[in-house]
Computed example of a mutant assay.
Amino acid sequence: MEYKDKILAIIPARAGSKGIKDKNIIDLNGKPLIAYSIEAAKKSKYIDRIVVSTDGEQIAKVAKEWGADVPFLRPDYLASDTAKTIDAMVHCIETLKEMGDEYDYVVLLQPTQPLRTAKHIDEAIEQLISSGEESLVSISKVKDHPILIRTLDDTGHVVNLLNTSSTQRRQDFPDYYKVNGAIYVNKLNENFNLETSLNDNRLAYVMNEKYDVDIDELLDLKIAELMLTNNLSLKEKERKVKHG
């Protein structure tokens, strides 16, 4: 499938990570974390340019080494704990436009999602453009089903999250999904602005939950290491079977 639209990938990578120091460039199986998103974007059939939006000189250096563009550093007001991703995206898009570089679609790839692949990115882009919709978000089935999730009222009694009986077989539970943070695709028009809520993008791209690892703490990093190692082992076994 071929598209004439120009597509920009933005990888947001703020320097001041809290849970893990220098999270965006921490080593994950021999590569900096951000490299996985850059490599996936580079392998995409549709992405025309990959820009990393960062306020960190070291992150910028690593991003460039792995093949991304860092044409400018994010200003300080977009690097605080209260700054939103959409603010950094709009700043990036508008700055590129001032530099004479405009796009039809933007793909947001958060570097904390190292298991997302070029195949996922391309399928999401194809799904959105073919649909005629303006926005898409990747989702995965939830591991903790909301039928079994409770809140507490003021008296300490449990309150069901869903207004339905939980006395049913697990295999009969209806499917529920969560926004997994791996891929966001938006058409760039007057509807994409500072008020855009990316998590409320309209069209759903469903990803297998085995790709849903969001690096927020060291345990997530260990889980990602195991999954990446297992994936490499499986690919090696498949290669040996294929070539005898």
Rank of each mutant, 00 (worst) to 15 (best):
T95F: 02
N208E: 14
N191M: 08
D101I: 11
V213H: 09
L161W: 10
H145A: 02
D175G: 02
V185P: 01
N160L: 03
Y205F: 15
L109A: 09
E209S: 12
V213Y: 11
I121S: 10
L115R: 12
L152D: 00
E134C: 04
L219Y: 07
Y211E: 15
M207R: 05
A118K: 11
I125W: 07
D200M: 08
P146R: 05
N163V: 02
D104H: 12
P114I: 10
L96T: 06
S138D: 06
K119Q: 15
I149F: 02
E102T: 14
E98S: 13
N186Y: 09
E133V: 05
D212T: 04
Q127E: 12
I139H: 01
V137K: 11
Q171D: 11
R116D: 05
L162N: 04
D212L: 06
T95S: 12
T155F: 05
M207P: 01
N201L: 00
T167P: 00
L152W: 01
E102W: 02
I129W: 09
T151I: 03
E123Q: 12
L194D: 05
E123W: 03
L203E: 02
G100F: 07
E94C: 02
T196I: 03
K141A: 10
I215K: 04
V206A: 06
K178E: 14
Y103K: 02
A118W: 15
V158H: 08
I139T: 10
Y184K: 11
Q171M: 06
K143N: 14
I215R: 03
S165I: 04
D175M: 06
V213L: 08
D101C: 06
D153K: 06
S135T: 13
E102N: 11
Y176H: 12
L148F: 15
N163W: 03
R150G: 02
V137W: 00
A124M: 06
L218C: 04
Q127W: 01
T117A: 10
L219R: 07
N189Q: 06
P146F: 05
L108A: 04
M207I: 15
T112F: 04
L219M: 05
R150E: 15
V159I: 07
E190A: 12
E102R: 11
N186D: 07
D101L: 06
P111V: 13
K119L: 10
H120W: 12
L198Y: 03
D200I: 00
V159M: 05
N191F: 08
N186I: 06
Y205E: 10
I121A: 05
K141E: 13
I139M: 11
T196Q: 04
G100T: 04
N208H: 13
V206W: 01
A118M: 10
E133W: 09
K178L: 09
S130H: 13
L115A: 13
S135Y: 03
S165Y: 04
E217N: 14
E209H: 12
A204S: 05
S131D: 07
K141T: 04
K143D: 14
N208L: 08
V159Q: 09
S197V: 05
D101N: 15
G156T: 01
H145G: 02
L136F: 02
E134V: 08
E134Y: 13
A118D: 15
L96K: 06
L108E: 10
E134S: 11
Y103A: 01
V179K: 07
P111C: 12
Y211R: 06
Y105H: 08
Y184D: 14
